[in-house]
């Protein structure tokens, strides 16, 4: 397998043929902010948080193949400004009340916002009305927090072989649905053992009756920032 090097914010990063910029950066211990990318799944390229400049051109690092000699910029003021704006839009499109969310401290959206120094949502909140699906005896879906990253869809389809989740609608109307006529999780073949039960980066797919059992101070991102532990769910899964 042939190898090469590119520079990321001025540092040499080695890569192997076929690797994306994201993969090579992660292998070298470098953090590029991201939400819809997960090392165990095919990249989706939808959140755009991982956008970098390659030889001056903006592109998603989770889908862009690494190329020898490329000059990649990621941690710059201008790029981080754009990332903060994307995060702010995600915050206002859903209902994210961190202080009373059980995923707080373990949430990749919140941790990424801290990492990038997002201080306020800035835009007006949409306050969408999205009822919780509590039909399943062991799991709860709180759609209020869905960022449409499609990780659960990929996990269910590619790992569990089930297709429990799907995106429906277009544009701003896009939403997550489950594969049952009733629209209820209880009527799908979803199970606790599924990979899809453990990949949500935010607080949508939740094990019931476990919220807040972990004390403040002992949660994933209390201990380390997300740049040091980008994928806490890998351990779990």
């Amino acid at each position: 397998m042939s190898e090469g090097n590119f520079t990321l914010d001025g540092e040499d990063i080695p890569f192997q043929e076929g690797q994306t910029i994201m993969q090579a950066a992660m292998a070298a211990g470098k953090y590029i902010p991201h939400l819809c990318y997960h090392p165990e799944f095919k990249p989706h390229g939808s959140c755009k948080l991982c956008t970098v400049r390659v030889n001056g051109r903006a592109t998603a690092s989770c889908t862009q193949r690494a190329a020898s000699g490329a000059v990649v910029e990621s941690n710059t003021h201008a790029i981080n400004d754009e990332r903060r704006a994307l995060l702010q839009m995600l915050f206002v499109e859903g209902n994210h009340f961190c202080p009373s969310c059980e995923k707080s401290g373990n949430c990749q959206l919140q941790a990424t916002a801290y990492e990038l120094g997002m201080m306020s949502p800035h835009y007006d909140h949409f306050f969408p009305n999205r009822p919780v699906d509590a039909s399943h005896p062991e799991y709860l879906l709180d759609f209020n927090r869905c960022i449409l990253c499609s990780l659960c869809i990929r996990a269910s389809r590619d790992v569990d072989g089930k297709n429990v989740f799907a995106l429906s609608g277009r544009g701003i109307k896009t939403r997550l649905i489950v594969n049952a006529k009733s629209g209820r999780l209880a009527d799908t073949n979803f199970s606790e053992a599924d990979k899809a039960a453990h990949v949500c980066p935010v607080g949508v797919i939740l094990k019931k009756r476990k919220g807040f059992a972990q004390p403040i101070g002992g949660r994933t991102f209390d201990l380390n920032p997300i740049s040091a532990t980008p994928h806490p769910t890998i351990k779990e899964g």
Partner: peptide, 11 residues
Amino acid sequence: PYWEVPVMVQR
């Protein structure tokens, strides 16, 4: 969900 209430009510 009920387990959220003790935290939520603090608001």
